[in-house]
């Protein structure tokens, strides 16, 4: 078993364990911290898949932005007198059944579809055209050439979201 495989399995286990922690815990703050584990695990999986810039972006935006926003939301939507912030589960059996059934469906679909033997993937592997070095330069060039319109639209979307969030959350 190579080092990369060990790293992959360790961080995949971390990701899944963090996600399961959100399902199983009864405390919202613990759920938020489990989400931190999941986001860090996903960032590590990005590194294993050769997406170094995306791993940094994942840590900066999700851990530094979205998660902090979630914890602020938890603080602002609970009574300060509560010592314990419960997040009880309902429909447990239905939820577990639906999740397991969906996962079984995906698992068999992934095994049967055998994506690894798709022509463009096998060709890329044969000609060693897989991602092997940093993708930062490629992504930067893409953003300023082929993807410049989505890039600008993303900027407008972020501004609209900023104004909208400030307007909705502000007291009138």
């Amino acid at each position: 078993m190579s080092v990369t495989e060990i790293i992959f399995y360790a961080f995949a286990a971390l990701t899944i364990a963090g996600a399961l922690g959100i399902v199983l815990t009864k405390n919202i703050l613990y759920a938020a911290f489990s989400l931190l584990l999941t986001f860090l695990g996903v960032a590590a999986l990005y590194v294993v898949a050769g997406a170094d810039l995306l791993a940094v972006v994942q840590i900066m935006i999700y851990v530094g932005g979205v998660l902090v926003l979630m914890i602020f939301g938890v603080m602002l939507t609970s009574k300060t007198t509560d010592k314990y912030l419960p997040s009880p589960s309902h429909n447990r059996i239905a939820g577990a059944l639906a999740g397991l059934a969906l996962f079984g469906l995906f698992f068999t679909a992934i095994l049967k579809a055998s994506f690894s033997t798709l022509p463009w993937i096998t060709q890329a592997e044969q000609h060693s055209r897989t991602v092997s070095e940093s993708t930062i330069a490629g992504i930067g060039i893409n953003l300023m050439t082929d993807f410049v319109l989505p890039f600008e639209i993303a900027g407008i979307l972020l501004m609209v979201a900023l104004i909208g969030a400030a307007y909705i959350a502000g007291r009138k």
Partner: peptide, 18 residues
């Protein structure tokens, strides 16, 4: 796929909006 399914289970079973 596992992460997706866990997300679906969370949306089904949890009742806190956050």
């Amino acid at each position: 796929a596992a992460l997706f399914c866990i997300g679906v289970v969370i949306i089904i079973t949890k009742r806190n909006a956050i």
